[in-house]
Design a binder for these strands. Structure first.
Lengths: 185, 185
DNA sequence: GAATTAAGTCAATATGACTGACGTAAATTT
DNA sequence: AAATTTACGTCAGTCATATTGACTTAATTC
């Protein structure tokens, strides 16, 4: 992160002056469209995932590993099937990443007690430590982002994010996220 | 989208009952960490990008094409170099995607008037139509997400997202996003 | 006993990214 | 005018993450 890149000057983004033939749209989009929000989401999310990526790179892990680690840390004893459902990836995609995490001693698999077909997933102590480290990085960024916002912004933002999710899926996601806050009022 | 998946039951995510040896962490994470916000961001962003993905799939385009199309639509006449700076990808990565967009008649390249080395990028009429379609989808989701939020939530959310970005990069991003709102108060 | 479920695996493929080097034309600097 | 820098493109190879579809094994459920 912190890459005051894209050239402080976007020099070429002028209009008119280029070969704009008559009839060309030389404005940057219909004013009624929420371009700014869309772009802020894009950049914000990129920064948000960027901090963990830097740490993970040292382990030769990528974002896929982070997602798996996160949800296993949060849901100790989760089944492979449920993890697939959350991540919405295929068994094959998960398989490789999971194997690497297990081999690296980050995640541990235990046979289910009631159902011996299951390989329940847990973070190891090392995995837990890594998960906490990554979450702390994201926490720091979130806290900086909340500075100076009016009271109640926390709830506004949570509600906004929740409502970005299709209504039919909200209940399931809420169960998973199990926020202590009242998001359904 | 709309895939009330992950099994409405996350059946296996119980604690205690599995082979939790003494000393195991059987809780789902330190209460002080903002897991819920982190996860809401993850799910919200996935839904947000999911709508366009479905449309793009019909053209055999992916998310990379969407990003290029979006920023060209928003910045008609942008230089390749500046686009690279915004997307933070390499020339090679952009090259392939851009070529496909040009071949498909979505994006047009014109020689710079003042600087003939430049290949300034514009959306074609077709490209413009597609860009608008995709933006409308995202607009609809954003509008649904804003329903029922208190007055001023719009500004809170914009500020939150902006502050997720490292301070040094904010000015550049604001220039690009050129929001009509007062984000810097 | 049959059907279903959980998990893993094989093989082939696609997408989007990367590195590093090199070339060409045009513009800018010295 | 020559040297340097910039804008763009390209070659060649690699990697990470995802896909599909088929198939196996073991265990559970009907």
């Amino acid at each position: 992160m912190t890459d005051v890149n894209f050239k402080s000057t976007l020099s070429s983004v002028s209009r008119e002056e280029h070969g704009a033939k008559s009839g060309d749209r030389d404005q940057r989009g219909d004013e009624s469209l929420p371009y700014d929000l869309i772009e802020l989401l894009f950049f914000a999310y990129r920064e948000f995932t960027g901090d963990p990526d830097d740490v993970l790179a040292k382990f030769e892990f990528g974002r896929a590993h982070h997602r798996v680690l996160h949800f296993v840390e949060r849901n100790p004893g989760i089944m492979v099937t449920d993890l697939l459902g959350i991540l919405k990836i295929t068994k094959q995609s998960l398989g490789r990443v999971l194997k690497q995490l297990v081999d690296a001693g980050i995640i541990e698999q235990r046979e289910g007690h009631h159902d011996r077909r299951q390989r329940l997933l847990f973070t190891t102590d090392q995995g837990h430590a890594l998960a906490v480290e990554l979450t702390r990085l994201q926490q720091q960024r979130l806290e900086r982002a909340l500075i100076g916002l009016p009271d109640g912004s926390n709830e506004v933002i949570r509600k906004f994010l929740l409502q970005m999710i299709d209504p039919e899926a909200r209940a399931d996601i809420l169960k998973l996220v199990r926020t202590p806050h009242d998001l359904l009022d």
